[in-house]
């Protein structure tokens, strides 16, 4: 099989050609660094994305607190995670980096706050 993709590991955006017979034998062409190869492998085997969203803040200077996953998350888990995030409600104070959900669905990925939320 062959798939063309653009490496998004960095802004350079190398245009990759990925060919494979089975999942243990993936060949990558067009990458300028090693990141390209691992990116392509992951895109074929288990594509992951960092998820960003906002959580309702009960009270606070801002109405919604921005959050992210500390690691890229398997794509298949993302919609359920988002629906879960939107049901949360947080009380300040929250500090940037604070873990809001730990080890989501056993993936080892945490949801963390991406800004401070002071008490009013």
């Amino acid at each position: 099989m062959e798939r063309k993709m653009v490496c998004i590991s960095c802004p350079l955006g190398c245009r990759l050609t990925v060919t494979w017979e089975d999942e243990n034998d993936i060949a990558v062409k067009g990458n300028k660094c090693a990141k390209g190869e691992s990116y392509a492998q992951e895109e074929i085997l288990a594509p992951k994305r960092v998820v960003t969203a906002t959580v309702r803040a009960a009270t606070g200077a801002v109405r919604r607190l921005p959050v992210k996953t500390n690691l890229p998350m398997l794509k298949g888990y993302i919609p359920a995670l988002l629906n879960r995030i939107y049901k949360l409600e947080l009380r300040p104070p929250i500090v940037r980096g604070q873990v809001l959900l730990k080890n989501i669905e056993g993936t080892g990925v945490d949801l963390v706050a991406t800004r401070n939320l002071k008490k009013v």
Partner: peptide
Amino acid sequence: EDLTGPEYAE
């Protein structure tokens, strides 16, 4: 580092 906008701003 791969930061979000609010993190970069803060």
